[in-house]
Write a protein that binds this DNA or RNA. Structure first.
Lengths: 185, 185
DNA sequence: GTCTATAGGCAGATAGAC
DNA sequence: GTCTATCTGCCTATAGAC
């Protein structure tokens, strides 16, 4: 694996756990066993350029993951519950659900940097699009599908926040139990 | 108004907009027209002690606000939609919904400080409790009420995140439109 | 492509005069 | 209770040798 990829992977994990402002370059290069010179060779524009690279990497990983889950299940309900199951499993094993959302590392940046906000916005739209398409395949109208997909995505995102603050996976489990109601025609 | 209250109010607004790590003490004292000596006189343990005071202040304001809205409306649906209306109005006027949630300033702290995490957890539990009580008054069983209240709270919290990243109030409006489905018996 | 050394600034925090 | 002056340490970023 090349140095640049190592930097991106390491920084991604650190950003996910501590937020953008919570991680210094010193911490990143120490974890990677490299030096500042090397980091600035790969990311001449410094920390924010590295963040953008990490967001792209996360975007790909999250999208791939969700697409795979949605292809594996025949209907939207199973797919959404499969997604939540995966989040719950992750949370119970690692104490985080870092790999699903940007929000944890974005709240301190979204008000400042436009490229970062755009990256988040585009990821959410992609996820909602995947859910919405499956709902249309289930027989919902496009408009209804969009509304339900947005609400489901918001519920899961909010559920993640609740799990993190309460240090328990119950909120997401409860949401998984309640969400089917949204799909009653 | 005394200096301590001015510090808390000013710092609260700054933390809400930029996150805990995103605001320096220098910015706070400049905004308050005071000096570091004065700040450390009122908060001897520094920045984190100030944050805790801000969280308490926010907790009171948010709880009072929601209790008032819930008392004003006769059923849960109207109360929830009234709450979302207020969030949407705030967002369209100020570009933030700072006054409702801790999440925006907590994501970079939750992994670090236990007192901060506890303050967030307790606020969420209070909000869910208010919603749940109203649902019981509407005739739902305690258990069902708890599940629905949690899901609604998560949806709104996630909706706030979507509004912030998309710089639009549509997500919360859509959620307000979809949520009634959760209340069908 | 990776290293060392260092610049320049701002962070949070403290001491002591008034 | 508020001020000025200052400390220490970390931050991002750069310059230049190898």
């Amino acid at each position: 694996m090349d140095t640049k990829s190592i930097i991106i992977d390491t920084a991604t994990t650190l950003f996910q756990h501590k937020g953008y402002k919570g991680v210094g370059l010193n911490e990143i290069i120490k974890e990677c066993n490299i030096t500042k010179g090397s980091l600035y060779h790969h990311f001449p524009n410094g920390k924010e350029e590295l963040l953008i690279a990490c967001l792209q990497s996360m975007d790909e990983a999250i999208t791939t993951d969700i697409v795979e889950i949605f292809n594996r299940h025949s209907n939207t309900l199973d797919a959404i519950q499969g997604t939540i199951d995966k989040l719950v499993t992750n949370f119970e094993r690692e104490g985080t659900v870092a790999g699903y959302t940007f929000s944890s590392l974005v709240s301190d940046m979204a008000s400042l940097s436009e490229p970062v906000r755009n990256a988040c916005s585009s990821l959410y739209e992609k996820i909602i699009g995947i859910v919405s398409n499956k709902l249309v395949a289930d027989g919902f109208s496009q408009e209804t599908a969009n509304s339900i997909a947005l609400t489901m995505t918001a519920s899961i995102e909010g559920g993640i926040l609740l799990c993190l603050t309460q240090k328990a996976s119950d909120p997401l489990k409860t949401i998984s139990y309640v969400l089917p109601v949204l799909l009653k025609k």
